[in-house]
């Protein structure tokens, strides 16, 4: 359980989300339940099964991989703001 608590704490930190202390305790217990629930899945024999990488196999993902000349003027025109050779973006923090 200590491992799970530490793992959950790390996930909260990585995700950068505010979680109250009481909620973190509750989530640790629930994560423990969830991982217990997953156990039969881990025991399933998956030898020879590839990982699925796309949501379905009817997508046309293949196109010719060739370099194309972009129209700079068109791109600049589509940008919200362009000045002095740069795309202007708003400051993140005032």
């Amino acid at each position: 359980m200590e491992d799970i608590k530490a793992g959950l704490e790390k996930a909260v930190r990585v995700m950068k989300i505010e979680v109250e202390a009481g909620e973190q305790e509750k989530l640790s217990a629930e994560l423990d339940q969830f991982l217990q629930w997953l156990k039969p899945m881990l025991d399933l024999e998956t030898e020879g099964a590839d990982q699925v990488l796309v949501a379905h196999d009817r997508i046309s993902v293949v196109r010719k991989d060739e370099a194309r000349q972009a129209d700079q003027a068109e791109l600049q025109e589509a940008a919200p703001d362009f000045a002095g050779g740069f795309y202007q973006v708003p400051p993140i923090i005032e």
Binding site: G7, A11, M15, L31, M41, L42, T46, A49, D50, Q51
Partner: peptide, 27 residues
């Protein structure tokens, strides 16, 4: 859901849970 998902994608859990789930998806 987001926190559990982040846990699953973390080092040490990714192979155990996520890769296995992707294989089961195929099955």
């Amino acid at each position: 859901r987001s926190i559990f998902g982040t846990y699953i994608l973390g080092k040490g859990h990714y192979d155990r849970y996520y890769r296995q789930a992707l294989k089961i998806w195929n099955l």
